[in-house]
Design a protein around this nucleic acid. Structure first.
Length: 211
DNA sequence: AACTCGGGGCA
DNA sequence: TGCCCAGAGTT
């Protein structure tokens, strides 16, 4: 099966399965999205959703958040893990937004990635979901599925992002990355070797696990 | 490139 | 009890 045929089959199948792609994190603005995504690094969104109601009640925006003590933030986000690191990042980030960005979340990769706790993946999610700029946030789900489908060599996420952007139409990126994540969780999880039960792997690829 | 960070889920 | 999760930062 050619790569172009795979891409076509994948996009068609995902569109059938997930015609609407509700964003997993409950956010209404760039700031709460950014903080939610920052928190979700190294955890599941189930964990994140457990603490965000409280967190955003006390710190709904950069200004309010910056006023909270690091310890206060730490207490709220305790269940998420890495609380000291993350609470410091959230406070510092909020202060930087106020000092340098007029209290608003900047809309460029460079500026986003300059913020503490924000790497390329988090920046990509914010650019895609908050600002509608085409991006392809590659997390381990994307990485794993692209590899299993034989669409990337599985070496690193940087390569995977390049391959994804090269293979999939730009206008689909922002929707597709969410669809792939949903699909990965539901049908093609990291430790499942049962490719017969995975409707996409069964057709387009049978590669084994990454690593 | 390798290592660290930390609590929860799960076997 | 011990492995796994999944990104960012540091060296």
């Amino acid at each position: 099966m050619k790569k172009t045929e795979k891409v076509e089959f994948i996009t068609e199948t995902l569109e059938k399965l997930y015609p609407r792609t509700p964003i997993p994190l409950d956010h209404t603005d760039p700031y709460t999205l950014l903080i939610s995504v920052l928190l979700s690094a190294q955890t599941t969104d189930k964990m994140v959703n457990r603490v965000t109601p409280d967190l955003f009640k006390k710190g709904p925006n950069a200004k309010a958040m910056a006023r909270l003590a690091t310890d206060e933030i730490r207490e709220i986000i305790k269940p998420v893990g890495l609380s000291p690191t993350k609470s410091k990042a959230i406070k510092k980030l909020s202060e930087i937004l106020i000092d340098k960005f007029d209290g608003k979340v900047p809309a460029t990769f460079k500026e986003l990635e300059s913020l503490p706790g924000v790497g390329h993946k988090t920046a990509s999610v914010v650019m895609a979901q908050a600002f509608g700029v085409p991006a392809f946030p590659v997390d381990t789900h994307i990485h794993r599925l692209m590899y299993r489908w034989g669409l990337t060599n599985g070496k690193n996420v940087t390569q995977t992002e390049k391959d994804a952007k090269r293979l999939f139409p730009k206008e689909l990126w922002n929707k597709l990355h969410l669809q792939i994540i949903f699909f990965g969780r539901e049908y093609c999880p990291a430790r499942s070797h049962n490719f017969e039960s995975c409707p996409l792997c069964r057709v387009v690829g049978r590669k084994s696990l990454v690593k």
